[in-house]
Design a protein around this nucleic acid. Sequence first.
DNA 1: AAGAATATCAATCAAATGATTAAATTTTTT
DNA 2: AAAAAATTTAATCATTTGATTGATATTCTT
Lengths: 204, 204
Amino acid sequence: MAKTQTNQVDSSTEEKIKQAARIVFTRKGYAATRTRDIAEEAGLNLALLNYYFRSKEKLFELIMMEKVQKLFGILAPLVNDPNTSLEEKVDRLTNNYFVMLTQNPDLPLFVLSEIRSHGSPFGEKVQVGKLLRESHLMKQVTERRPDLDPLQVAMTLLGMIVFPFIAKPILFNQELEQQEAFAMLIEDRKRLIPLWFQACIGVR
Amino acid sequence: MAKTQTNQVDSSTEEKIKQAARIVFTRKGYAATRTRDIAEEAGLNLALLNYYFRSKEKLFELIMMEKVQKLFGILAPLVNDPNTSLEEKVDRLTNNYFVMLTQNPDLPLFVLSEIRSHGSPFGEKVQVGKLLRESHLMKQVTERRPDLDPLQVAMTLLGMIVFPFIAKPILFNQELEQQEAFAMLIEDRKRLIPLWFQACIGVR
DNA sequence: AAGAATATCAATCAAATGATTAAATTTTTT
DNA sequence: AAAAAATTTAATCATTTGATTGATATTCTT
């Protein structure tokens, strides 16, 4: 079946389909996506989707796994690094996420809404909650502020980072001017979040 | 056509359909919802949907308008009240939203993801950005901190309020214990957000 | 109570959609 | 070069799905 030539730049049919699927699934969500949309986006015959990936559902699972990995894969190594201070963790989380989210602005809304609507074979699996609660980051927060629920702090931090990208469609319209304003806002936020995080964790 | 008896408790067919539509649309999103799902949820014949609401799209628009109003209707009067201080505005925003969101936990994710996926006849219309930018709240923030982009502050505040409900599905599983933990966390957050907001706006 | 308007239902339609098939083409192996 | 394997294509299938129809039942008006 699939997989023939040694992938050089991977302009293989399989990869073309995956790339088209990434675009269409992300733009419209699983349910609103027609396999014909993907075939058209890829410039390929419809039957090739089933030839390479068996079914729409299987193809989606593949893309979804990628997206979940991209969104949450950053998290574990950063929040569990025993060699970074709390401040360094906040810096790195902010910077790493902003780089990735600037290139994938609608990744969070896509992943979260698909987990909710798409009868959670993922929702159960993802459980970022467990990862966060048992993380080194949580220990450091508790150490600094034993009176606070560290999850409150983590949610505030993640919210400060992710929320702008989730709210972007209703806060900024599609005009170039607004999109530039958003980019500048994000850039400035790299400085503000660590500052504000310190302020939050410092105040009583 | 529709509308016959004087609505007392409104157990009318029309209202039954709307209630079922609210449930199913919110749970699965527009594209994944079948009109038959709604009819079944309402315990009514499928043809009645079209009899009362013409089409799935029309019914959805109705529900969507309701949801958008519920999510953003709170905002305008609060952020534009010229008789409340900045601190009072933050208090009221936090409390009002938490009451509403506790009863409608998946409202934000539903509205935001439908605006994104459902080819924005709404996305254009909603423009909370304009409302916020021209608000009395923004003026008060600028007054207090002329060096800050007030939109940064507003996004942080809204993120602190809304983000927990958006991230809930991946941070808390369905077990009763976790759901109770979430409820307590929200309760405690009513106190933390005003405190943290002050800290953020105070720090330099 | 008779007639008219409104509401509900089972059955059905037409279009959309995910998937398959069998033939044609290209690539790889021998 | 011949044979075999893999890939691509047009056509088609079976289901699903939003919507409609015409018959029946219920409610309202007179």
